[in-house]
């Protein structure tokens, strides 16, 4: 029963069948799944891969129009002190959010989608989720390169850019942990899927993405709202992303360390829980 508990923590023990990191032996499968996902994407569309850029561009344009132009949210000045631009300020946070959202929804649908195979052949049940994560990271990389390219053209560039991929890795670990947890619950209770759509929608607005954190009043309804929003781990990621790319600022070792700690804890916790809860998943799907 307590296979996970009794495992010795050597590489061989962790990667053997049923081990916590057995996924390592299934690299080929994950590569195949990613290839399948990317290959089938935008099939039968005229613009094809252009959609992977048009989609975020359209979202960005809408938010920029509504919140930047109509509601006149004021962005701070960019790191080089020469301009301010709401769309770019927004984009820096939106990339993070898109990755977070993509990993969570991707992990949930991947398990349901490929789960039927688990009754016929053995493979680690986290493989589809990991493949979904890599697919999302691919998309995030496209978005981020466009963003960085624009910023470089505006001569708003610094060494801080180099830290951004690290931030993305932490965010993916954080999101994967949550996504794995939700996906295994979602197999048993489909409510989880519906519920998380709502929660994610709410989360989008309590995270400083379409607005700067400074716009939130210190206190409202007798609550320290700004501090509450700041405590949301996701806010840390979006804010840090803005600081690195837009403000050209170092977030500080303490904050980075805290983000690393939180994401590693959530990621490892979600992963372990998933491994324990999916030991009999073939019977449930």
């Amino acid at each position: 029963m307590g296979r996970l508990g009794s495992t010795r923590w050597t590489w061989a023990a962790l990667t053997k069948r049923g081990g916590v990191l057995e996924i390592w032996g299934y690299r080929e499968l994950i590569g195949r799944l990613v290839q399948r996902e990317l290959g089938s994407r935008y099939k039968r569309s005229v613009l094809g891969w252009l959609w992977s850029m048009l989609n975020p561009a359209a979202t960005l344009a809408i938010y920029a129009l509504v919140f930047g132009v109509l509601l006149k949210f004021d962005p701070p000045r960019a790191g080089n002190g020469r301009f301010d631009n709401f769309a770019l300020y927004l984009f820096c946070a939106l990339v993070m959010w898109n990755a977070f959202y993509g990993v969570i929804t991707g992990a949930m649908s991947a398990l349901l989608d490929l789960g039927s195979l688990l009754g016929k052949v053995y493979f680690p049940p986290e493989a589809p989720a990991v493949a979904a994560l890599l697919t999302v990271l691919f998309q995030a990389a496209i978005e981020a390169s466009i963003l960085m390219l624009i910023l470089i053209c505006l001569v708003n560039v610094s060494w801080t850019f180099l830290l951004w991929p690290v931030l993305l890795v932490f965010l993916s670990i954080f999101a994967l942990g949550i996504g794995l947890m939700l996906s295994v619950w979602n197999v048993r209770y489909r409510d989880v899927g519906y519920l998380s759509t709502i929660v994610l929608q709410f989360l989008f607005y309590v995270t400083p993405i379409v607005y700067p954190l400074s716009l939130i009043p210190e206190r409202a309804m007798g609550l320290p709202v700004r501090d509450i929003i700041r405590l949301n781990p996701l806010s840390q990621f979006t804010e840090a992303s803005r600081e690195l790319l837009y403000g050209l600022d170092w977030p500080g070792v303490l904050r980075l360390g805290l983000m690393a700690l939180i994401s590693l804890a959530v990621g490892a916790g979600g992963w372990l829980m998933f491994k324990v809860r999916t030991r009999d998943i073939a019977e449930e799907l």
Partner: peptide
Amino acid sequence: ENIYLNASVLGVPK
């Protein structure tokens, strides 16, 4: 595609 998927599930290199 299923041949490849199956093979990778079984750990056979491409």
